[in-house]
Amino acid sequence: MSLAAAGRRGRAVLTGLLARHEWADHLVRAVLRYHERHGNHLAAAITFFSILNAVPLLMIALAAAGYLLWFNPELLAAVEAGITGAVPAELADTVEPVIETAVEQRNTVAGVGLVAALWAGTWWMSNLREAVSAQWAIPPRNPASLQRLLSDLLALVGLWLALVASLLVTAIGTGLGETVLRLAGWQGAGWTQLTRFTLGLLLGLAADWLIFFWIITRLPRTHGPVHGAVRAALLGAVGLEVLRHALTIYLGRITGSPGGAVFGSLLGLLVFAYLVSRFVLLVTAWAATVPENLRPEPEPEQPSAVVHAAAAPGRTGSGGGVAAAVAGAMLVGVLVGTRLHHGRRGPR
């Protein structure tokens, strides 16, 4: 069989598959929408702003640790003793002042971290909303205005509330499951570990579904109805759990060596953030290509045509008069210059 015949047969098989299975046709539409709307580039931008936003969050975490140590002198002494015992003796006198300075400057670190987190988080949310809206074929908004920044700030608060709600669902569900196992007297059973893993997986899926449902329905810059959001959020929750477990396996294997513990973890987190960003946009493209959600692509703006009166036959407008005057002046200048040049040379 020739290569051309094999290609025709493969296209026929693919066409038949898409005609028989709606899910396959939907998946192809989603992937095409993802690439047409520059999903990879937008995911890279989201990853960059996510890493940038992590710096003020670390400052807030450091300030929170400073407050915790300041309110607990015994814990501060234990931390200092543990750190100084882990470093060489010649560095012990250098480490203790650093810890004390970090605790003393907790207010400054907290203030700067909160302001920076508010600023970076708002711009991170703005770029995330633009990327998600692009998958819905929604044209980008005008440069940032006060109303748009306030809308992005409210969206950021909504995302944090969704994250807190997902954590509460996981914590309450886990505690309830432990209570049920204890009351039933199954804590010593051999399959308790499997039960806990299954319960944790189901609670994780529920929390991820809540976050994806909020992203699909609330983040795009549109207020139209969203069909198929429940199924799209479920697809996103399952995919995110797969990525999370893959990252856990990767970090467990790479942190065996000192170099891998430092650079492998950072590289793994960076790749994980990029893959999650791509997956979020792909799930959004899947929701946007549900037949009920399909909307026509926005037509590119055409430059306004300027029609001069001189273009009309048999008429002379102001534009044609100006052009004729400029051409006449140039011709007169050339003739005068030529005449003066010959006059200066003259007979010798």
Rank of each mutant, 00 (worst) to 15 (best):
R221P: 00
P300M: 15
H223I: 01
G256W: 13
A63M: 02
G264H: 11
A207R: 01
E100D: 14
E241I: 05
W119A: 13
L57I: 09
L331K: 11
S2A: 07
L203H: 10
V322W: 14
N293F: 08
V242Y: 06
I211R: 05
H26A: 07
Y274D: 08
W214E: 08
E299G: 15
L340G: 01
L150F: 08
L210I: 12
L149G: 05
A232I: 06
D152E: 12
L266Y: 03
G224K: 08
A19Q: 08
G346I: 04
G239A: 15
E96C: 00
G85E: 01
A288W: 09
H223S: 12
Q147P: 10
R182H: 14
A288N: 02
A165Q: 10
T179P: 00
M125D: 03
F197Y: 12
A324R: 14
A323L: 14
G175T: 08
L128F: 09
P291E: 06
S145G: 15
A120H: 04
R221L: 14
R29L: 13
P300S: 12
P139R: 14
E301F: 08
P139M: 09
I211P: 00
T84N: 04
A310W: 09
H26M: 05
L14R: 03
V169K: 11
V307E: 09
I51K: 03
A64W: 03
G259R: 13
A116D: 04
G113R: 06
R344N: 10
V79H: 08
T255W: 05
V238G: 07
P225S: 03
L235W: 12
A120P: 01
L234R: 11
G319M: 06
N72E: 13
R141F: 09
P225E: 05
G10P: 00
A171D: 08
L161K: 09
A30S: 13
L275I: 07
H21W: 10
L18I: 00
D152T: 01
A312I: 04
L331Q: 15
D25T: 03
G264K: 09
A206W: 06
Y34G: 08
A30D: 09
V280I: 14
R129I: 01
L247E: 13
E80L: 06
I138Y: 02
G333K: 04
L281K: 07
W136M: 04
E80I: 06
R9Q: 05
E241Q: 15
V230F: 11
V109C: 00
A61F: 01
L267W: 04
L154C: 04
G85T: 01
P143E: 11
A12N: 03
R244E: 15
S151C: 05
V307Q: 01
A233R: 10
R148W: 11
E178H: 13
G346P: 04
V332G: 03
V242H: 07
M59R: 00
S304W: 00
P73W: 10
A229S: 14
L331C: 12
R182W: 12
P298Y: 05
L235A: 14
T174C: 00
W23N: 05
P298C: 13
G7A: 04
D93A: 12
S145V: 03
L167N: 02
R20N: 11
T101E: 10
L27A: 14
I83A: 07
V262D: 10
L168I: 13
E36A: 06
P300W: 09
P347M: 13
L269W: 14
S133F: 07
G204D: 10
E241S: 15
L153E: 04
A285S: 05
